[in-house]
Write a protein that binds this DNA or RNA. Structure first.
Lengths: 113, 113
DNA sequence: TCCGTTGTTCAAAATATATTGAACTATTGA
DNA sequence: TCAATAGTTCAATATATTTTGAACAACGGA
């Protein structure tokens, strides 16, 4: 039992950016990073959304090549593919994670009008 | 005559990532960077899409805070807000642009099945 | 002033993404 | 074996984003 993950050269930049260009998924990645890349499981993210919806977002992150999902008994362990991503896109994840960590999500109020 | 741009602290990460998570817009940014941040105008991107559609994408990039659009006579000059973005999200744009430049867009064929 | 150039805006249609609830699967522990 | 746990899948809906064409606006030069 193991889930499909893209390998390094199958990871494409705009996919990665699109995957991270969503508040929920960015929050997931941010928490994973804050957790020092120690794998986490689904229920630790329940505050972000419903189980079903998280499942969807986890799949997106996995398919984009951002996270690794390992099956462990009845639960799944999710971690960042940090080293690999850094090889593929040097500096990218670090820059994102760094920012996402300090900025607690600036309230996205309309800036025009 | 000048267009509305967000200022630094109004630029938010997931917006920026979402804006760049689109092949067309990533290609625009990539060309701007390849052009050494010298402002370019719309017709220089016509190979990427139709005028109308480019207009839409340019607005997205501008509203996300990624590009600066200056009105100059009958045309508009578009440039990267590189220094500013780098202040807001250190390393981010560099990492993206660097990658987008060398990788000529890996053909996005399905990696499963 | 009239025309061509350079783009924009609008509304409609096409497409893609996100969210939900109900039903399901796999594994573990009693 | 049975129930609880942890999470997935499916189909439907809701929502957002892209794309298009037709009509418009601003500027500059003849």
């Amino acid at each position: 039992m193991s889930l499909p993950h893209p390998n390094l050269d199958q990871i494409n930049l705009s996919n990665v950016l699109a995957a991270l260009g969503d508040e929920t998924r960015l929050a997931i990645v941010s928490q994973l990073a804050r957790n020092n890349d120690v794998p986490m499981n689904c229920w630790q993210f329940l505050e972000l959304s419903s189980r079903t919806n998280l499942s969807y977002h986890f799949a997106k992150l996995r398919e984009a090549g951002i996270t690794l999902t390992e099956v462990s008994g009845t639960s799944r362990l999710i971690s960042l593919r940090r080293a690999e991503l850094d090889r593929r896109f040097p500096g990218l994840l670090d820059a994102i994670v760094e920012t996402a960590q300090q900025a607690p999500v600036p309230d996205d109020q309309a800036w025009r009008d």
